[in-house]
């Protein structure tokens, strides 16, 4: 088990370190054009193409029967009323499905109901061990902190891709740098992002059960996004690069007139390369739950099996083999061994 863990932990770590060295070597070999233009374009193409391919592939699978996972009572006797929470947990209409999906996508409801189990000694029977369940919100907290800060960090980067920074981005920055500490102002989301990632990583490493089921594909995105966050923070606060040149580069990319301004530090190329790798890796990994959450049949279907007939597209008219045919075939043999027959 230890070896299994080591393999799945250290190989992705090594890959991410190699991914940091590659752009460094490329920078030293003056391959800025490849690092800043070719690879980012390629990454966005692979990202979009892969994502659309996967979504279409999912959409081609028929889901003939409704298979929602439900946590509440289905429609029942008329005097049994369903509360709003029960309607969202066992949706009967499209509107309720939309409500359920919104709760899932925006607030990670299924993680919010996460439970933990522990064996404890009950006070009245100290010699016994009893299994206790209780609410466990840390995973939800870590996940929601990570996802929302990542989104905000992504939106903040719009500053580089627009001629004049949109108002909402300025508002985000203003709120994000609320405390106005240090120069340049520290953005809280950057710190929360790394803290949440650290928790999500430690959760896998610390708990033996989690460690056992964690694979390289679980650690790799964590290491990769941690490396992206770390290089970003280093670049913003410590090893500064010429930010107007970076913006010129970004604007050149989105206006399809790519230029590589001179004098951008190597850390920028490392950051950009890691982001490109994340984009390329995205459609082939578990990160695609971004699209998959909308297409999961256990969540996005109304639980109406009891009153709507859903027909299987691969149903065929079945040729029945009724008992009487069976008897016609074996009547003589049945009579011989004394079995009762319907027709003489």
């Amino acid at each position: 088990m230890t070896d299994f863990f080591k393999l799945h932990f250290f190989i992705p770590l090594g890959i991410v370190l190699a991914l940091i060295i590659i752009p460094y070597v490329g920078y030293m070999a003056n391959q800025q054009l490849v690092l800043a233009v070719v690879i980012p374009y390629l990454a966005v193409l692979i990202f979009l193409e892969g994502l659309i391919y996967r979504v279409i592939k999912w959409a081609r699978s028929p889901v003939p029967f409704r298979i929602p996972t439900t946590c509440a009572q289905n429609r029942s006797l008329p005097w049994i009323k369903k509360s709003i929470g029960e309607k969202l947990d066992n949706p009967e209409t499209t509107l309720q499905v939309i409500g359920r999906m919104a709760l899932e996508v925006l607030f990670f409801r299924s993680l919010f109901r996460n439970l933990t189990t522990k064996l404890r000694r009950p006070a009245d029977h100290p010699e016994d061990a009893k299994l206790y369940y209780w609410s466990y919100k840390w995973l939800w907290l870590g996940a929601i902190a990570f996802h929302y800060t990542f989104l905000i960090v992504l939106l903040r980067h719009l500053r580089f891709f627009t001629e004049t920074t949109p108002g909402f981005v300025q508002t985000i920055e203003h709120v994000d740098g609320w405390f106005q500490i240090f120069q340049p102002t520290v953005y809280l989301t950057g710190i929360i992002l790394l803290a949440a990632l650290t928790y999500l990583l430690l959760r896998r490493v610390y708990n033996p059960n989690m460690r056992y089921i964690s694979l390289a594909s679980d650690y790799f995105p964590l290491f990769l996004i941690m490396a992206i966050g770390t290089t970003g923070i280093l670049m913003r606060y410590f090893f500064k690069v010429d930010i107007t040149a970076v913006k010129q580069l970004a604007l050149g990319l989105v206006t399809f007139k790519p230029t590589v301004p001179a004098g951008i530090g190597v850390i920028f190329y490392i950051h950009l390369f890691l982001v490109s790798v994340l984009f390329m890796y995205f459609p082939f990994s578990k990160l695609l739950h971004m699209a998959g959450v909308f297409l999961s049949p256990t969540r996005n279907l109304a639980n109406n099996n009891r009153w709507v007939r859903h027909i299987n597209p691969w149903n065929y008219p079945v040729k029945f083999h009724p008992y009487i045919e069976h008897e016609n075939k074996y009547r003589q043999a049945m009579k011989e061994v004394g079995l009762p027959v319907e027709k003489e």
Partner: peptide
């Protein structure tokens, strides 16, 4: 006992999927 029909290859909920993409 029967004949397997060819399941039509199509994008289910096409409009929704395309709108989302």
């Amino acid at each position: 006992v029967g004949e397997k029909p060819k399941v039509e290859k199509k994008i289910y909920n096409r409009n929704l999927i395309l709108a989302g993409i």
